[in-house]
Amino acid sequence: MALRIDKTDRIKAWFLSLPALLLYSAVLIYPIIQVFRMSFYSWNGIPASPMRFVGLLNYKAFLSDARFLIALKNVGIFILSGFLVIFPVSLFMATVIQKNSPLKRVFKTCYFIPQVISRTAIALMWYFVLYPDGGPVANLCELLGLTNVNVNFLGRPETAIYAIVLINAWTYAGYNMLIFSAGLTSIPQELNEAALIDGANGRQTFFRITLPLLRNSFNIFALNCIIGSITTFEMVFVTTNGGPGYASEVFGTLLYKNAFTYNNYGYSNAVGAFLIFSSFIMSVLLTKLFEKTKD
């Protein structure tokens, strides 16, 4: 398979690889090694002040922190919302944009739009749409006569994380729609036609034929959803920054705040190392698992 080339060309080929190798190693691999190294040190973030070796203390502090459990629970809510909200909605939208309706292009564009808007802008938009003092949603609740509902959805510890996962669902539904749409395209049309001729109705064809054949798309969705949930950050950071109190904390906000608010950089690196390690392990495990179920 390899191209046959002579020795000088082999050397030239290495020179071609060099910038890529350097860029990747310097910008990603070196700092990742540093995260693991620095996670064993205590440091206040001032470059001149020394780092103090503390062994596993940062990990102990992080894993025994009440906020760790809150973050873990919130990541669980993120994953659950992915399967319960994003999955059905994006699959539904995928079927809509697959239909040969005259408005196909309009549907696709509208569903896809959040993908090109920055997460910060999206978070801010929703922050204002959910604004408790006269924002549109608060207004809607009042119009519907829901006067006993506390409309401060992002500002109350009981509802903050749910408001955020719904904003997150709004953001990523269009992205996953494309994954399922690609899956739908790859299903041969004859299969559906055959089923219809055999007397199945549209709904039966969808649930018995189409859905099982979307296995690979579902695997991609599931992988993205789980890893994305573990590493989620920006949406929470911009809307609530983990608050009120610690109610909507995720691992990303713990990493950020411990460094830049509490000057506890060692702790942050332990969170960083945990994030890198867990998403790496999860990616490998899930990919292995999905390979087995692949058809």
């Binding site: 990747y24 990603l28 691999i29 700092p31 990742i32 540093q34 995260v35 620095m38 470059p47 890893i227 590493t231 950050f233 990303g252 990493l255 950020y256 460094a259 950089y265 942050s268 690196n269 960083g272 190392a273 994030l275 890198i276 998403s279 790496f280 990616s283 490998v284």
Partner: peptide
């Protein structure tokens, strides 16, 4: 490997 790790995990060393 880089596909499987979140870039912002290395935020602190990068800032340093």
């Amino acid at each position: 490997i880089g596909l499987m790790v979140p870039a912002y995990g290395m935020l602190i060393p990068m800032v340093k």
